[in-house]
Design a protein around this nucleic acid. Structure first.
Lengths: 231, 231
DNA sequence: CATCCGCGTTGACGGATGTCAAAAACACAA
DNA sequence: TTGTGTTTTTGACATCCGTCAACGCGGATG
């Protein structure tokens, strides 16, 4: 039996739209892989050797400077596609933020399969276009927003993105959620320092906009205020 | 005769790879359009009604906040594809920086044509993936680089990008070039203010790294220094 | 040639955010 | 529980860059 049959992202990932025979063929070239939190899957500037679908968990895409500064350039959730098909090198590292399960393919195998299956390429194109849109709106945040706008925007985005994943069946944005990021990682997403992130969090807490039940937990108390702050 | 026959980007744009019959069909649904410097082609958040290939000239892709802050999120050169296929709204405005000629399609027509021509979709996918890579490396710049690193990186990128376009048949990066940007637009690319951009330019001039023969002209005198500064 | 106007430059200043350091909170193991 | 190491918070301070304002340059126009 193909493991795709029981795949929880079967109908959301780029594999959706393939018929049973095609799924079977794709299954032949892919394999499941477990990645534990903190473990890297792809290295920046390495030969692009593998691509993958995220089944479960959250991963970060990062680029770094030589002197060690890091910028998180993307976050991959279940059903997202990661890696760089049709290219020699990947421009970002991929590291698991939580324990994760992915469905990996060698890039060569995947490229070949994709070229033979236009429907799959189309799905991948739609996904890539959507990711480009998201990335561009994040450029606005990085280039033109101040720290409090960044934090507000970030919390709202988290509340949207994590709602889809969580058990609550996507009834609008999540009011309370668990961040898959440490403070340092939040800083790396927003182009800030960990201290600034921390100060902005406590400021929002003191103003009664959010609650912070634990390090990773966030509860949005006053969503309207966040929206106003996000600008 | 199809106007594609004489198109200067025929072999670089996504149309390359189509046979004569297909080119003829594509030509049926597209039309040439002249855009003068400063003229908008697509509005942010508008219904995505048209897409286009750039034939000649340079255009900017921008997003703005309600209070008027602007961030340039992409720059389109000849043979680049602009607009948002397969989506309801476009996430960025497109405005010509120089006089430009583009080959426009209604989004609906283009979407339909693309879905029937996997080779075209593949070209578009490769282009979109490359653009996503570029955009992500720009996020690093916006989030983690300081003003002088930003300016140095920008000048090097310009020198590369404009070399391909210029008459000089792409013998490495251009040593001297004419910026398609005003100082304000450079600021909008880099997430800085016009004053900071101006100060950094004169600083580099005083250090003998560049020459500024006129407002728009730049000559790179000491490329090594720029590379070192870019980080 | 004189005037105007947009764009770019320069200067003075302040504030937001980064840096450095220490304390506090938390996680985990013994 | 206690101890140990990590993460987060908080504070003091420095600095880069933004803001505001004046000025200069160059091109267009009459």
């Amino acid at each position: 039996m193909s493991s795709c049959d029981t795949c929880v992202v079967r109908n959301r990932a780029i594999c959706s739209g393939l018929d049973n025979r095609e799924i079977e063929a794709l299954n032949q070239i892919g394999r499941r892989r477990q990645v534990t939190a903190g473990e890297p899957l792809i290295w920046e500037d390495d030969d692009s050797l593998l691509v993958a679908n995220v089944i479960e968990g959250v991963l970060k895409l990062t680029t770094s400077t030589e002197d060690g500064r890091e910028q998180i350039v993307g976050v991959a959730y279940p059903s997202d596609f990661i890696g760089r098909p049709f290219g020699q090198t990947s421009s970002a590292s991929v590291v698991a933020l939580t324990d994760a399960r992915v469905c990996v393919f060698s890039r060569n195998d995947f490229d070949r399969f994709a070229r033979e299956h236009p429907e799959l390429e189309h799905k991948l194109l739609e996904r890539t276009l959507a990711e480009l849109d998201r990335t561009r709106s994040w450029m606005m945040l990085l280039g033109r927003k101040n720290a409090s706008e960044k934090i507000a925007t970030f919390l709202l985005e988290m509340s949207d993105r994590l709602a889809e994943t969580g058990c609550t069946p996507a009834f609008g944005p999540a009011k309370r959620f668990s961040l898959p990021f440490s403070r340092q990682q939040v800083a790396d997403v927003l182009g800030l320092t960990i201290e600034t992130v921390s100060r902005q969090f406590t400021k929002l807490k003191n103003e009664g906009v959010i609650e912070l039940p634990s390090r990773r937990e966030v509860e949005i108390v006053n969503r309207g205020a966040l929206v106003a702050l996000a600008g």
